[in-house]
Design a protein around this nucleic acid. Sequence first.
RNA 1: GGGCACAUAGCUCAGCGGUAGAGCACCGCCUUCACACGGCGGGGGUCGAAGGUUCGAAACCUUCUGUGCCCACCA
Length: 854
Amino acid sequence: TAVAVNSTDERYTHLHGKTVLLPLTNREIPIIIDDVLVDPKFGTGVVKVTPAHDHNDYATGLRHNLPMINIFTETAHVNENGGKYQGLERFEARKKVLEDLTELGLLIETKPHKLALAISERTKVPVEPRLSPQWYVKIQPLADKAIAAVKEGKTTFVPETWTAVYMKWMEGIHDWCISRQLWWGHQIPAWFKVGADGKPDFESTPVVSRTKPPEGEWVQDPDVLDTWFSSGLWPFSTLGWPQKTEELKTFYPNSVMETGHDIIFFWVARMMMMGLHFMGEVPFRTVYLHAMVRDEKGDKMSKTKGNVIDPLDIILGAPAANLPGSIRNKYPQGLPAQGADALRFTLASLTQQGRDIKLSIDRIGGYRAFCNKIWNAARFAMMNLGDFTDDGSVFIKERSLSLADRWILSRLNRVTVATQAALTAYQFAEAASVLYQFLWGEFCDWYIELSKSALYGDDAHAKTSTRAVLVFVLDQVLRLLHPFMPFLTEEIWQKLPITRSVESIMIAPYPVEDARLHDAAAEAEMKPISQAIDGIRAIRGESNLSPALKIEAVIQSESQQVRESLDRWRSYVMPLTGLAKLSVTAMGVKPQQAAADIRSDMEIYVPLAGIVDLAEERERLKKEISKAEQEIAAINKKFENPRFVERAPPDVVEKDRARVIELTSRIEKLSENLRRIAPVEMRIAPPATGSVNLGDELRAEMSEASVSAGPDAQVTEALVQLRAGTKEGLTSRDHYDLGVAYMGMGLVDDAVREFNAAKDEVNTPNARPSVPSAPAKVKVKAPAKSKARAAVKAIKAPKKKAPAAAKKKVAVKAKAKKAVVKAKAKKAPVAAKKKKAVVKTKVKKAAPKKKGKR
RNA sequence: GGGCACAUAGCUCAGCGGUAGAGCACCGCCUUCACACGGCGGGGGUCGAAGGUUCGAAACCUUCUGUGCCCACCA
């Protein structure tokens, strides 16, 4: 249609205003000057212009008033405007054009050239831009109103980051083509005169009408409206518009529009424009844009990629064979059934504002376990309600309650407030998290455990109160949870044997804050109790004590309040920590041979020499000390910088100062305890090789052989008797032998005590010269080592006596045996346990035997 | 090509100026009378990289790298 050059291109200045002859059609076309279209540095600096078949050229055509010559039919064949190429398919036509140009000697060269080509998503062939009659909506006046409404805050976006997306699109908007050549949709209500071929004559002036115009031959435009044009009417067309119905009056404008951020342009923007135009008011006050679910790599799920997970496969489970390819590869075992509530709760938990969700099957599994946990907690409650059928609300306000009761009610109130706040702020993940933590971490882990003594006890009053609280909390928390887990909560709620005001949890009132439940005193009093329980549990856990083993604990505290609370609620502490005895005292003498847990306002001791592994306890203390030291170092680094004290807010500085003092005191206490249970280092001096640490060596052997006095009650008893009998009237030799025997049992600390006793005896005139004194050390000569070894061996193979001459061989054998045990232990834990059991039995026999020897 | 997000423990994610957290997975002890889809305890991170602001940065700013999404006639 034209040939364009850049005005600054001096090569072509002489051609300005002239025309050229199009060789293949002999049409005369103008040379135009267009600096927008033509880049003089690119190619020849001359470009052909086809306004009917290219977007840029179309704009150029408008600028220069060029004719729009369409050369394609709907099927991309050359039409009557294509001269001799008429009827050819587009790719054929291109080949022919090249051939003809070559033949005429007009083709100078061909060069490969990369360009962006629009490809049809459905048919995968290049799209040919082509002029055709379409309906457009003049958009600017509509957009202006839609922009103003958001700027004025009449409608807000949540998360607000999407406001910018909406604005950018609105501000750069262009007229909206609303006609579509599809098979279904709202047919455009426009009528054209019937043309010669029986089809609409698009050149005629259309009549817009719902019904056929009465006079003349008319045919309705076959096109349908863009689906978003129809959908844009949704906020009011669904409410009876254009009639002025009650529904329309009530629900327009609506409060919250909830949708995906991928259709802000398509739908939200159109609803805004349509609503403002037809109703004169925004369609909704808030637009909440939810996260989109992606696959595990963050890619959008699509059928083409084959990465779509059907929600039903997650809910109901699916064998691998039923899954699409890429999903099957990741889950070759298929998907386990997770349930609708677990899926829903997971989605809520992962819905963080402004982010998309990478769906994690594993995480759904975690919440499935949560569903199970709730179910079992409810089962526990119902099993223990007895004949209690009240909903508890009256009881909890009129009766005196236990500390645990008051505490959980206060926590419930906090959770109610937090859940409400989160929901109001559209923080669904936060709400889900709050409820999860409360239900599992507080209600199940603490309240249910604490309630057992009352429920299983004889105090009728306490029993009834606990039942009331149990059912009340459950009822309330189920309501709070209901939006996140509709099925499970309804099921349990219906099963609760309580009187209800409504027939479904769906319409039960959502819990609101109840200031009367708030109980700061109860929460404060629970603190030392949970601290004590945590501390004792930590000692047990770190020392791998069996839960069945009853232990004693001593708790010392400077705070009288703490002591009183612990004393009053010892029935909470003892069962949760498996205590046989709990002593609560003021600060004073520390129990000997005890594991310790030092807290800021209490010190917990578990005096169990021989049962708690003091070596491990020492490691634990060292670790705690090092942790505290590291923290002090980090804080001190701050203080070294003078500007920190100078410029940081006083409260921050003060907080750090206090923390240093607290940590220092903690380190002191921990170190003190470490000293108290420190083993005395023992050295033996074998003739040739120099000194060896017998304690370490034996300990290493012991642990390799898995010899343990263990938690066995009989063993414990035997040890107590043994120790009771070693206090007085023993010779140095006796102490020495006992030390060896203790070593043999792996009780290093007891052994050390005996060796030291032996050392004391040595200082008397009758002392055995083979046990010389050394400051804070016990030196034992080689024979002692062999005896110790023999003791070890006796434990391992008690019936065989090892002659002194054969000790080396035996030692080698024993080592080989140990290696076998070790290897077995790795592969077959059951076998290792059996081995251990055998060893234990021998210890039982060995201990009283020693006693008898005295 | 333009725009917007995101990058924190093996995985999925919180935290968003003042002592690095959760769930799952992992390790140890336990089939204790709601729950082994469980209980208790534990190990694991120079918070993508480099600069800058600050007394102090995982967090605020800049640049870079990587990943993803949206738009692509116009931003």
